[in-house]
Write a protein that binds this DNA or RNA. Structure first.
Length: 518
RNA sequence: CGGGGCGUAGCGCAGUCUGGUAGCGCAUCUGCUUUGGGAGCAGAGGGUCGCGUGUUCGAAUCACGCCGCCCCGACCA
Protein backbone atom coordinates (compact mmCIF):
# COMPACT_ATOMS: atom_id res chain seq x y z
CA UNK A 1 0.00 0.00 0.00
CA UNK A 2 1.22 3.45 -0.80
CA UNK A 3 0.58 6.21 1.64
CA UNK A 4 2.31 9.35 0.63
CA UNK A 5 1.47 12.88 1.62
CA UNK A 6 -2.17 13.62 1.99
CA UNK A 7 -1.89 15.97 -0.95
CA UNK A 8 -0.08 15.36 -4.20
CA UNK A 9 1.43 18.27 -6.05
CA UNK A 10 0.95 16.41 -9.27
CA UNK A 11 -2.82 16.25 -9.12
CA UNK A 12 -4.51 18.09 -11.97
CA UNK A 13 -5.96 20.76 -9.75
CA UNK A 14 -3.54 23.67 -9.73
CA UNK A 15 -4.96 24.96 -6.48
CA UNK A 16 -3.41 22.00 -4.69
CA UNK A 17 0.17 23.23 -5.03
CA UNK A 18 -0.09 25.50 -1.97
CA UNK A 19 -1.77 22.68 -0.07
CA UNK A 20 0.99 20.30 -1.11
CA UNK A 21 3.55 22.84 0.09
CA UNK A 22 1.90 23.10 3.48
CA UNK A 23 1.65 19.33 3.72
CA UNK A 24 5.38 18.94 3.08
CA UNK A 25 6.28 21.60 5.64
CA UNK A 26 4.09 19.83 8.17
CA UNK A 27 4.98 16.21 7.36
CA UNK A 28 8.70 16.88 7.06
CA UNK A 29 8.41 18.56 10.46
CA UNK A 30 10.03 21.76 9.31
CA UNK A 31 7.77 24.27 11.00
CA UNK A 32 4.30 25.00 12.29
CA UNK A 33 2.17 28.05 12.84
CA UNK A 34 2.42 29.71 16.22
CA UNK A 35 -0.10 31.26 18.58
CA UNK A 36 1.18 34.60 17.31
CA UNK A 37 -0.42 35.51 14.05
CA UNK A 38 1.93 35.39 11.11
CA UNK A 39 4.84 33.93 13.05
CA UNK A 40 6.19 30.41 12.84
CA UNK A 41 7.75 27.86 15.11
CA UNK A 42 10.72 26.35 13.31
CA UNK A 43 11.02 22.75 14.44
CA UNK A 44 14.35 20.97 15.01
CA UNK A 45 14.59 19.44 11.54
CA UNK A 46 13.72 22.73 9.87
CA UNK A 47 16.07 24.67 12.09
CA UNK A 48 18.78 22.11 11.43
CA UNK A 49 18.49 22.91 7.74
CA UNK A 50 18.79 26.61 8.55
CA UNK A 51 21.91 25.95 10.60
CA UNK A 52 23.58 24.04 7.75
CA UNK A 53 22.64 26.72 5.29
CA UNK A 54 23.80 29.41 7.66
CA UNK A 55 27.13 27.72 8.26
CA UNK A 56 27.88 27.45 4.56
CA UNK A 57 26.84 30.99 3.75
CA UNK A 58 28.59 32.42 6.79
CA UNK A 59 31.83 30.90 5.54
CA UNK A 60 31.31 32.52 2.14
CA UNK A 61 30.55 35.88 3.74
CA UNK A 62 33.71 35.72 5.80
CA UNK A 63 35.79 34.55 2.86
CA UNK A 64 34.79 37.73 1.05
CA UNK A 65 36.20 39.81 3.88
CA UNK A 66 33.16 40.55 6.01
CA UNK A 67 32.89 40.41 9.78
CA UNK A 68 29.84 39.55 11.85
CA UNK A 69 28.43 41.95 14.40
CA UNK A 70 25.12 42.44 16.17
CA UNK A 71 22.94 45.52 16.31
CA UNK A 72 19.83 46.17 18.44
CA UNK A 73 16.39 44.77 17.70
CA UNK A 74 14.82 48.13 18.60
CA UNK A 75 15.37 51.14 16.42
CA UNK A 76 14.38 54.67 17.43
CA UNK A 77 11.49 55.79 15.27
CA UNK A 78 13.31 58.99 14.34
CA UNK A 79 16.04 57.00 12.58
CA UNK A 80 13.56 56.04 9.91
CA UNK A 81 12.47 59.57 9.22
CA UNK A 82 15.84 60.43 7.71
CA UNK A 83 15.65 58.66 4.36
CA UNK A 84 12.34 59.50 2.71
CA UNK A 85 11.98 56.59 0.28
CA UNK A 86 13.09 54.14 2.97
CA UNK A 87 10.43 55.38 5.41
CA UNK A 88 7.73 55.21 2.80
CA UNK A 89 8.68 51.68 1.83
CA UNK A 90 8.52 50.28 5.32
CA UNK A 91 6.07 52.54 7.16
CA UNK A 92 3.06 50.32 6.60
CA UNK A 93 4.59 47.19 7.97
CA UNK A 94 6.33 48.24 11.16
CA UNK A 95 5.79 46.78 14.61
CA UNK A 96 6.15 49.61 17.14
CA UNK A 97 6.92 49.49 20.84
CA UNK A 98 5.28 52.37 22.65
CA UNK A 99 5.29 51.33 26.32
CA UNK A 100 7.69 49.78 28.76
CA UNK A 101 5.42 48.46 31.49
CA UNK A 102 2.22 46.60 32.28
CA UNK A 103 -0.02 46.96 35.27
CA UNK A 104 -2.74 44.92 36.91
CA UNK A 105 -6.16 46.46 36.47
CA UNK A 106 -9.25 44.66 37.74
CA UNK A 107 -7.42 41.33 37.73
CA UNK A 108 -6.16 41.83 34.21
CA UNK A 109 -2.81 42.87 32.89
CA UNK A 110 -3.02 46.00 30.81
CA UNK A 111 -0.52 48.33 29.23
CA UNK A 112 0.31 50.99 31.76
CA UNK A 113 -0.72 54.30 30.20
CA UNK A 114 1.80 56.07 32.43
CA UNK A 115 4.65 54.08 30.91
CA UNK A 116 4.66 55.51 27.40
CA UNK A 117 8.11 55.79 25.84
CA UNK A 118 9.29 59.28 25.00
CA UNK A 119 10.16 58.04 21.56
CA UNK A 120 8.54 54.89 20.15
CA UNK A 121 10.89 52.08 19.15
CA UNK A 122 10.47 50.20 15.90
CA UNK A 123 11.15 46.46 15.85
CA UNK A 124 13.71 46.30 13.04
CA UNK A 125 12.27 45.45 9.62
CA UNK A 126 15.86 45.81 8.34
CA UNK A 127 18.86 47.55 9.88
CA UNK A 128 20.16 50.14 7.40
CA UNK A 129 19.28 52.98 9.75
CA UNK A 130 20.70 51.66 13.01
CA UNK A 131 23.82 50.30 11.34
CA UNK A 132 24.23 53.52 9.40
CA UNK A 133 24.14 55.39 12.70
CA UNK A 134 27.05 53.28 13.93
CA UNK A 135 28.91 53.68 10.62
CA UNK A 136 28.59 57.42 10.95
CA UNK A 137 30.52 57.21 14.21
CA UNK A 138 32.96 54.49 13.13
CA UNK A 139 34.06 56.01 9.85
CA UNK A 140 36.38 58.99 9.96
CA UNK A 141 38.97 58.41 7.29
CA UNK A 142 39.37 56.69 3.93
CA UNK A 143 41.61 54.35 5.89
CA UNK A 144 38.46 53.02 7.67
CA UNK A 145 37.04 51.94 4.31
CA UNK A 146 35.73 49.69 3.05
CA UNK A 147 33.79 48.74 6.17
CA UNK A 148 32.32 45.28 5.65
CA UNK A 149 29.78 44.13 8.23
CA UNK A 150 27.27 41.31 8.35
CA UNK A 151 24.60 40.51 10.91
CA UNK A 152 22.58 37.32 11.49
CA UNK A 153 19.30 38.36 13.04
CA UNK A 154 15.55 38.16 13.15
CA UNK A 155 13.44 40.91 11.63
CA UNK A 156 9.76 41.80 11.77
CA UNK A 157 7.51 43.07 9.03
CA UNK A 158 3.82 43.26 9.73
CA UNK A 159 2.63 41.27 6.72
CA UNK A 160 -0.99 41.05 5.71
CA UNK A 161 -0.79 37.58 4.31
CA UNK A 162 1.70 35.03 5.57
CA UNK A 163 2.88 31.58 4.55
CA UNK A 164 5.36 29.43 6.45
CA UNK A 165 8.93 30.30 5.41
CA UNK A 166 7.84 32.22 2.30
CA UNK A 167 6.42 35.19 4.11
CA UNK A 168 6.10 35.45 7.86
CA UNK A 169 5.88 38.46 10.12
CA UNK A 170 9.08 37.48 11.84
CA UNK A 171 11.84 35.75 9.94
CA UNK A 172 15.52 34.95 10.27
CA UNK A 173 18.07 36.30 7.86
CA UNK A 174 21.48 37.74 7.37
CA UNK A 175 21.93 41.33 6.33
CA UNK A 176 25.21 42.63 5.05
CA UNK A 177 25.97 46.33 5.30
CA UNK A 178 29.03 47.90 3.79
CA UNK A 179 30.48 51.36 3.26
CA UNK A 180 32.94 52.33 0.52
CA UNK A 181 34.96 55.29 -0.59
CA UNK A 182 33.72 55.37 -4.16
CA UNK A 183 30.99 54.19 -6.53
CA UNK A 184 33.09 51.62 -8.29
CA UNK A 185 34.05 49.87 -5.08
CA UNK A 186 30.48 49.86 -3.77
CA UNK A 187 29.07 48.61 -7.05
CA UNK A 188 31.71 45.88 -7.17
CA UNK A 189 30.69 44.84 -3.67
CA UNK A 190 27.02 44.69 -4.70
CA UNK A 191 27.87 42.41 -7.61
CA UNK A 192 30.30 40.32 -5.59
CA UNK A 193 27.62 39.46 -3.06
CA UNK A 194 25.04 38.80 -5.75
CA UNK A 195 27.50 36.30 -7.16
CA UNK A 196 28.05 34.79 -3.70
CA UNK A 197 24.29 34.26 -3.47
CA UNK A 198 24.06 32.80 -6.97
CA UNK A 199 26.80 30.31 -6.32
CA UNK A 200 25.47 29.48 -2.87
CA UNK A 201 21.95 28.85 -4.22
CA UNK A 202 23.17 26.70 -7.08
CA UNK A 203 26.00 24.83 -5.37
CA UNK A 204 24.72 24.42 -1.83
CA UNK A 205 20.94 24.50 -2.27
CA UNK A 206 21.03 22.86 -5.74
CA UNK A 207 18.59 25.60 -6.68
CA UNK A 208 19.31 27.14 -10.08
CA UNK A 209 18.63 30.87 -10.30
CA UNK A 210 18.69 33.76 -12.69
CA UNK A 211 20.71 36.69 -11.40
CA UNK A 212 19.79 40.11 -12.64
CA UNK A 213 18.91 43.70 -11.88
CA UNK A 214 15.47 44.59 -10.59
CA UNK A 215 13.58 47.14 -12.64
CA UNK A 216 13.23 50.55 -11.03
CA UNK A 217 9.74 49.86 -9.64
CA UNK A 218 10.93 46.76 -7.78
CA UNK A 219 13.86 48.43 -6.05
CA UNK A 220 14.53 48.29 -2.34
CA UNK A 221 13.23 51.49 -0.71
CA UNK A 222 16.09 53.96 -0.79
CA UNK A 223 18.34 52.00 -3.17
CA UNK A 224 19.92 53.23 -6.37
CA UNK A 225 20.03 49.74 -7.81
CA UNK A 226 18.67 46.38 -6.61
CA UNK A 227 19.79 43.00 -7.89
CA UNK A 228 18.17 39.66 -7.22
CA UNK A 229 18.46 35.96 -7.80
CA UNK A 230 15.17 34.44 -8.95
CA UNK A 231 14.38 30.73 -8.65
CA UNK A 232 11.63 28.83 -10.44
CA UNK A 233 9.36 26.81 -8.22
CA UNK A 234 7.61 23.63 -9.35
CA UNK A 235 4.41 25.53 -10.05
CA UNK A 236 6.26 27.87 -12.38
CA UNK A 237 6.25 30.87 -10.07
CA UNK A 238 9.34 32.91 -9.36
CA UNK A 239 10.78 33.14 -5.88
CA UNK A 240 13.05 36.07 -5.13
CA UNK A 241 15.70 34.15 -3.25
CA UNK A 242 18.19 36.87 -2.44
CA UNK A 243 18.83 40.56 -3.02
CA UNK A 244 21.82 42.84 -3.18
CA UNK A 245 21.52 46.62 -3.21
CA UNK A 246 23.73 49.51 -4.19
CA UNK A 247 22.42 52.29 -1.99
CA UNK A 248 24.45 55.09 -3.55
CA UNK A 249 25.00 57.96 -1.16
CA UNK A 250 21.33 58.12 -0.19
CA UNK A 251 21.75 56.68 3.28
CA UNK A 252 25.13 58.30 3.74
CA UNK A 253 23.60 61.73 3.13
CA UNK A 254 20.59 60.98 5.32
CA UNK A 255 22.78 59.74 8.15
CA UNK A 256 25.87 61.79 7.63
CA UNK A 257 28.20 58.88 6.95
CA UNK A 258 31.32 60.79 5.82
CA UNK A 259 35.04 60.24 5.59
CA UNK A 260 38.06 62.38 4.95
CA UNK A 261 39.76 61.40 1.70
CA UNK A 262 43.50 61.45 0.95
CA UNK A 263 43.27 65.12 0.01
CA UNK A 264 41.68 65.91 3.36
CA UNK A 265 38.22 66.59 1.98
CA UNK A 266 34.99 65.29 3.49
CA UNK A 267 33.08 62.88 1.25
CA UNK A 268 29.92 60.85 1.67
CA UNK A 269 30.34 57.07 1.64
CA UNK A 270 28.73 54.79 -0.89
CA UNK A 271 26.87 51.98 0.90
CA UNK A 272 25.45 48.60 0.04
CA UNK A 273 23.22 46.05 1.71
CA UNK A 274 22.31 42.49 0.85
CA UNK A 275 20.39 39.62 2.41
CA UNK A 276 18.89 36.18 2.24
CA UNK A 277 16.38 34.71 4.67
CA UNK A 278 14.63 31.61 5.95
CA UNK A 279 12.54 32.00 2.81
CA UNK A 280 15.27 29.93 1.16
CA UNK A 281 13.97 26.90 3.03
CA UNK A 282 10.59 27.39 1.35
CA UNK A 283 12.48 27.62 -1.93
CA UNK A 284 14.22 24.31 -1.28
CA UNK A 285 10.86 22.66 -0.52
CA UNK A 286 9.24 24.01 -3.69
CA UNK A 287 12.29 23.21 -5.82
CA UNK A 288 13.05 19.68 -4.68
CA UNK A 289 9.96 18.30 -2.92
CA UNK A 290 7.98 15.47 -4.46
CA UNK A 291 4.85 13.44 -3.72
CA UNK A 292 6.64 11.58 -0.95
CA UNK A 293 7.65 14.76 0.86
CA UNK A 294 10.86 16.73 1.04
CA UNK A 295 14.07 15.90 -0.80
CA UNK A 296 17.04 17.67 0.73
CA UNK A 297 20.25 18.53 -1.08
CA UNK A 298 22.89 16.60 0.91
CA UNK A 299 24.94 19.74 1.44
CA UNK A 300 22.25 21.17 3.74
CA UNK A 301 20.72 17.98 5.13
CA UNK A 302 21.14 17.95 8.92
CA UNK A 303 21.57 14.18 8.54
CA UNK A 304 22.94 12.99 5.25
CA UNK A 305 22.78 9.26 5.95
CA UNK A 306 20.19 7.81 8.31
CA UNK A 307 20.52 4.20 9.38
CA UNK A 308 17.29 2.49 10.35
CA UNK A 309 18.02 -0.75 12.17
CA UNK A 310 15.50 -3.53 11.64
CA UNK A 311 14.83 -4.62 15.20
CA UNK A 312 12.63 -7.58 15.97
CA UNK A 313 12.81 -8.07 19.74
CA UNK A 314 15.16 -10.96 19.22
CA UNK A 315 18.67 -11.71 20.50
CA UNK A 316 20.28 -10.66 17.21
CA UNK A 317 18.96 -7.10 17.75
CA UNK A 318 22.13 -6.37 19.69
CA UNK A 319 24.26 -7.32 16.70
CA UNK A 320 22.12 -5.23 14.40
CA UNK A 321 22.53 -2.21 16.65
CA UNK A 322 26.26 -2.79 16.95
CA UNK A 323 26.49 -3.05 13.18
CA UNK A 324 24.52 0.20 12.78
CA UNK A 325 26.72 1.97 15.31
CA UNK A 326 29.93 0.93 13.63
CA UNK A 327 28.53 1.99 10.26
CA UNK A 328 27.46 5.39 11.61
CA UNK A 329 30.84 5.88 13.25
CA UNK A 330 32.72 4.99 10.07
CA UNK A 331 30.53 7.35 8.01
CA UNK A 332 30.97 10.18 10.50
CA UNK A 333 34.69 9.81 9.98
CA UNK A 334 34.28 10.49 6.27
CA UNK A 335 34.32 13.86 4.58
CA UNK A 336 31.59 15.14 2.28
CA UNK A 337 31.33 18.63 0.80
CA UNK A 338 34.49 19.54 2.67
CA UNK A 339 33.02 18.74 6.08
CA UNK A 340 32.54 15.78 8.36
CA UNK A 341 29.79 13.57 7.06
CA UNK A 342 26.59 13.62 9.09
CA UNK A 343 25.20 10.14 9.75
CA UNK A 344 22.62 9.06 12.31
CA UNK A 345 21.64 5.70 13.73
CA UNK A 346 17.91 6.02 14.41
CA UNK A 347 17.32 3.94 17.52
CA UNK A 348 13.79 5.13 18.18
CA UNK A 349 11.35 2.43 19.21
CA UNK A 350 9.34 2.42 16.01
CA UNK A 351 8.70 -0.14 13.35
CA UNK A 352 11.57 0.04 10.93
CA UNK A 353 9.26 0.60 7.96
CA UNK A 354 7.63 3.56 9.71
CA UNK A 355 11.05 4.95 10.49
CA UNK A 356 12.07 4.65 6.89
CA UNK A 357 9.04 6.59 5.64
CA UNK A 358 9.52 9.16 8.35
CA UNK A 359 12.98 9.91 6.91
CA UNK A 360 11.63 9.79 3.38
CA UNK A 361 9.15 12.56 4.23
CA UNK A 362 11.88 14.57 5.94
CA UNK A 363 14.09 14.23 2.90
CA UNK A 364 17.19 12.48 4.26
CA UNK A 365 19.37 11.91 1.16
CA UNK A 366 20.45 8.34 1.96
CA UNK A 367 18.39 5.97 4.06
CA UNK A 368 20.06 2.74 5.13
CA UNK A 369 18.01 -0.20 6.38
CA UNK A 370 20.18 -2.55 8.37
CA UNK A 371 18.90 -5.96 9.42
CA UNK A 372 20.43 -9.13 10.85
CA UNK A 373 21.33 -10.51 7.44
CA UNK A 374 23.27 -7.33 6.62
CA UNK A 375 25.01 -7.45 9.98
CA UNK A 376 26.02 -11.02 9.35
CA UNK A 377 27.15 -10.53 5.78
CA UNK A 378 28.60 -7.03 6.06
CA UNK A 379 26.21 -5.65 3.49
CA UNK A 380 24.52 -2.25 3.30
CA UNK A 381 21.07 -1.85 1.75
CA UNK A 382 20.08 1.73 1.11
CA UNK A 383 17.68 4.09 -0.66
CA UNK A 384 18.53 7.28 -2.47
CA UNK A 385 15.91 9.88 -1.73
CA UNK A 386 16.44 11.61 -5.08
CA UNK A 387 15.47 8.41 -6.92
CA UNK A 388 13.21 6.72 -4.42
CA UNK A 389 10.91 4.74 -6.61
CA UNK A 390 11.23 2.36 -9.47
CA UNK A 391 7.66 2.20 -10.71
CA UNK A 392 5.57 1.11 -7.73
CA UNK A 393 8.56 -0.29 -5.93
CA UNK A 394 11.04 1.38 -3.67
CA UNK A 395 14.40 1.34 -5.44
CA UNK A 396 16.87 -0.03 -2.91
CA UNK A 397 20.48 -0.87 -3.64
CA UNK A 398 23.01 -3.05 -1.90
CA UNK A 399 26.76 -2.65 -1.45
CA UNK A 400 29.45 -4.23 0.67
CA UNK A 401 29.98 -2.28 3.88
CA UNK A 402 33.52 -1.12 3.17
CA UNK A 403 32.56 -0.07 -0.35
CA UNK A 404 29.53 1.86 0.93
CA UNK A 405 31.59 3.72 3.52
CA UNK A 406 34.15 4.64 0.89
CA UNK A 407 31.54 5.53 -1.73
CA UNK A 408 29.09 7.46 0.47
CA UNK A 409 30.65 10.89 -0.14
CA UNK A 410 30.51 10.30 -3.88
CA UNK A 411 26.88 9.14 -3.69
CA UNK A 412 25.98 12.26 -1.74
CA UNK A 413 27.72 14.42 -4.32
CA UNK A 414 25.85 12.53 -7.00
CA UNK A 415 22.50 13.19 -5.30
CA UNK A 416 23.39 16.86 -4.98
CA UNK A 417 24.12 17.17 -8.68
CA UNK A 418 21.10 15.05 -9.68
CA UNK A 419 18.80 17.40 -7.77
CA UNK A 420 20.47 20.38 -9.36
CA UNK A 421 20.26 18.90 -12.84
CA UNK A 422 16.56 18.16 -12.46
CA UNK A 423 15.81 21.70 -11.29
CA UNK A 424 18.10 23.25 -13.88
CA UNK A 425 16.34 21.39 -16.69
CA UNK A 426 12.98 22.58 -15.40
CA UNK A 427 14.22 26.17 -15.32
CA UNK A 428 15.82 26.10 -18.75
CA UNK A 429 12.90 24.30 -20.39
CA UNK A 430 10.37 26.77 -19.08
CA UNK A 431 11.76 30.14 -19.99
CA UNK A 432 10.14 31.14 -23.26
CA UNK A 433 11.88 33.68 -25.40
CA UNK A 434 9.67 33.38 -28.50
CA UNK A 435 6.91 35.70 -27.30
CA UNK A 436 7.02 38.89 -29.31
CA UNK A 437 3.90 40.84 -28.42
CA UNK A 438 1.90 41.76 -25.36
CA UNK A 439 -1.08 39.97 -26.90
CA UNK A 440 0.91 36.76 -27.14
CA UNK A 441 1.97 37.24 -23.53
CA UNK A 442 -1.65 37.73 -22.45
CA UNK A 443 -2.61 34.68 -24.44
CA UNK A 444 0.03 32.57 -22.72
CA UNK A 445 -0.69 33.74 -19.18
CA UNK A 446 -4.21 35.07 -19.56
CA UNK A 447 -7.40 34.39 -17.67
CA UNK A 448 -8.66 32.02 -20.36
CA UNK A 449 -5.59 29.85 -19.89
CA UNK A 450 -6.22 29.90 -16.13
CA UNK A 451 -9.64 28.35 -16.51
CA UNK A 452 -8.35 25.64 -18.78
CA UNK A 453 -8.35 22.36 -16.87
CA UNK A 454 -5.32 20.78 -18.47
CA UNK A 455 -3.47 24.06 -18.79
CA UNK A 456 0.20 23.47 -19.57
CA UNK A 457 2.92 24.34 -17.10
CA UNK A 458 3.74 28.01 -17.45
CA UNK A 459 7.09 29.30 -16.41
CA UNK A 460 8.66 32.61 -17.32
CA UNK A 461 9.00 34.71 -20.42
CA UNK A 462 12.18 36.44 -21.44
CA UNK A 463 11.29 39.41 -23.59
CA UNK A 464 13.00 42.35 -25.26
CA UNK A 465 12.17 45.69 -23.74
CA UNK A 466 13.18 49.31 -23.95
CA UNK A 467 13.68 49.85 -20.21
CA UNK A 468 10.97 52.43 -19.71
CA UNK A 469 11.12 54.47 -16.51
CA UNK A 470 8.78 56.53 -14.35
CA UNK A 471 5.17 56.71 -15.48
CA UNK A 472 5.83 54.58 -18.56
CA UNK A 473 7.17 51.82 -16.35
CA UNK A 474 4.20 52.16 -14.00
CA UNK A 475 1.93 51.65 -16.98
CA UNK A 476 3.78 48.50 -17.99
CA UNK A 477 3.55 47.24 -14.43
CA UNK A 478 -0.18 47.89 -14.33
CA UNK A 479 -0.75 45.98 -17.55
CA UNK A 480 1.25 43.05 -16.22
CA UNK A 481 -0.61 43.15 -12.94
CA UNK A 482 -3.80 42.47 -14.84
CA UNK A 483 -2.25 39.17 -15.83
CA UNK A 484 -0.94 38.55 -12.28
CA UNK A 485 2.54 39.03 -13.72
CA UNK A 486 5.50 41.10 -12.71
CA UNK A 487 8.93 41.99 -14.02
CA UNK A 488 11.29 39.65 -12.20
CA UNK A 489 14.66 40.97 -13.22
CA UNK A 490 16.89 41.95 -16.10
CA UNK A 491 19.23 38.98 -16.34
CA UNK A 492 22.93 39.77 -16.15
CA UNK A 493 23.51 37.27 -18.93
CA UNK A 494 21.84 38.86 -21.90
CA UNK A 495 21.06 37.19 -25.21
CA UNK A 496 20.98 38.93 -28.54
CA UNK A 497 19.45 42.39 -29.17
CA UNK A 498 16.06 40.78 -29.95
CA UNK A 499 13.85 43.34 -31.73
CA UNK A 500 11.28 45.74 -30.34
CA UNK A 501 10.04 46.25 -26.81
CA UNK A 502 7.15 44.01 -25.89
CA UNK A 503 5.42 46.91 -24.17
CA UNK A 504 6.34 50.16 -25.87
CA UNK A 505 7.22 48.97 -29.38
CA UNK A 506 10.37 51.05 -29.21
CA UNK A 507 13.70 49.40 -30.06
CA UNK A 508 14.67 47.07 -27.23
CA UNK A 509 17.85 47.67 -25.26
CA UNK A 510 17.87 44.44 -23.29
CA UNK A 511 15.81 41.45 -22.20
CA UNK A 512 13.64 41.30 -19.11
CA UNK A 513 12.26 38.30 -17.28
CA UNK A 514 8.49 38.15 -16.72
CA UNK A 515 6.59 35.71 -14.53
CA UNK A 516 4.23 35.09 -11.67
CA UNK A 517 5.85 35.48 -8.31
CA UNK A 518 5.68 34.62 -4.64
C1' C B 1 -8.31 45.78 4.37
C1' G B 2 -11.93 43.89 0.06
C1' G B 3 -14.09 39.07 -2.50
C1' G B 4 -14.71 33.72 -1.93
C1' G B 5 -14.16 29.18 0.98
C1' C B 6 -13.39 26.71 5.63
C1' G B 7 -12.95 25.90 11.26
C1' U B 8 -15.64 18.72 14.43
C1' A B 9 -9.38 14.04 18.15
C1' G B 10 -2.31 14.77 16.10
C1' C B 11 -3.60 14.47 10.34
C1' G B 12 -7.60 13.83 6.68
C1' C B 13 -12.82 14.00 6.86
C1' A B 14 -18.48 12.68 7.68
C1' G B 15 -22.44 14.58 10.57
C1' U B 16 -25.01 20.80 9.99
C1' C B 17 -29.96 21.63 5.12
C1' U B 18 -34.39 18.61 8.39
C1' G B 19 -31.82 20.62 16.61
C1' G B 20 -32.24 14.95 20.46
C1' U B 21 -26.35 14.59 24.06
C1' A B 22 -20.28 12.96 18.47
C1' G B 23 -18.49 9.33 14.43
C1' C B 24 -15.02 7.19 10.37
C1' G B 25 -9.91 6.32 8.27
C1' C B 26 -4.84 7.00 9.47
C1' A B 27 -1.78 8.10 13.77
C1' U B 28 -1.23 7.00 19.41
C1' C B 29 -1.44 3.23 23.65
C1' U B 30 -2.07 -2.24 25.38
C1' G B 31 -2.08 -7.49 24.25
C1' C B 32 -1.35 -11.50 20.94
C1' U B 33 0.37 -12.89 16.14
C1' U B 34 3.68 -11.43 12.37
C1' U B 35 8.63 -9.77 10.66
C1' G B 36 13.67 -7.49 4.83
C1' G B 37 10.07 -3.65 3.41
C1' G B 38 4.49 2.05 4.50
C1' A B 39 1.75 -5.54 8.95
C1' G B 40 -2.88 -8.57 10.95
C1' C B 41 -6.44 -9.36 14.81
C1' A B 42 -8.58 -7.74 19.42
C1' G B 43 -9.11 -3.88 22.76
C1' A B 44 -8.19 1.19 24.73
C1' G B 45 -7.18 6.41 25.29
C1' G B 46 -7.94 11.08 23.15
C1' G B 47 -12.80 16.15 21.27
C1' U B 48 -15.16 22.93 26.03
C1' C B 49 -17.54 20.37 17.73
C1' G B 50 -12.84 28.00 16.76
C1' C B 51 -14.86 31.74 20.70
C1' G B 52 -19.01 34.45 22.73
C1' U B 53 -24.09 35.84 23.14
C1' G B 54 -28.94 34.53 21.98
C1' U B 55 -33.36 31.20 20.50
C1' U B 56 -34.97 26.40 22.58
C1' C B 57 -37.00 21.55 27.26
C1' G B 58 -32.56 20.49 24.39
C1' A B 59 -27.52 23.54 19.89
C1' A B 60 -21.76 20.71 16.34
C1' U B 61 -26.58 21.68 13.91
C1' C B 62 -30.63 27.74 14.05
C1' A B 63 -29.57 33.53 14.66
C1' C B 64 -26.16 37.49 15.65
C1' G B 65 -21.22 39.09 16.81
C1' C B 66 -16.08 38.06 17.06
C1' C B 67 -11.49 35.22 16.13
C1' G B 68 -8.47 32.14 13.16
C1' C B 69 -6.98 29.48 8.69
C1' C B 70 -6.87 28.82 3.17
C1' C B 71 -7.43 30.85 -1.91
C1' C B 72 -7.79 35.43 -4.95
C1' G B 73 -6.65 40.89 -4.79
C1' A B 74 -3.74 45.30 -2.57
C1' C B 75 1.62 44.89 -0.05
C1' C B 76 6.14 42.37 0.28
C1' A B 77 12.33 38.85 1.26
Amino acid sequence: MQRALSVSRMSGNRSTFPEWYQAVVREAELAETSPVRGCMIIKPWGYGIWEELQRDLDRRIKETGHQNAYFPLFIPLSFFAKEAAHVEGFAKEMAVVTHHRLKALGGELVVDPDAALEEPLVVRPTSETIIGDAFQRWIKSYRDLPLLINQWANVVRWEMRTRLFLRTSEFLWQEGHTAHADVADARAETMRMLEVYRDFAETTLAMPVVAGEKPENERFPGAVATYSIEAMMQDGKALQAGTSHYLGQNFARAQNIRFQDAKGELEYCHTTSWGVSTRLIGGVVMTHGDDDGLRLPPAIAPRQVVICPILRDKPEDAEVLAYGESLAKALNGQTAFGERMRALLDTRAMRSADKRWDWVRRGAPIIVEAGPRDAASGQVVFLRRDALRDGDKVASQAMAQHAFIAEAPRILADIQSALYAEAKARLDDNIRSDIRSFEALADYFGAAADEDEGAPFRGWVRAPWSRPTGAALEAVDARLKGLKLSLRNIPLEQGGPGGDCLFTGAPAVEEVLIGRAY
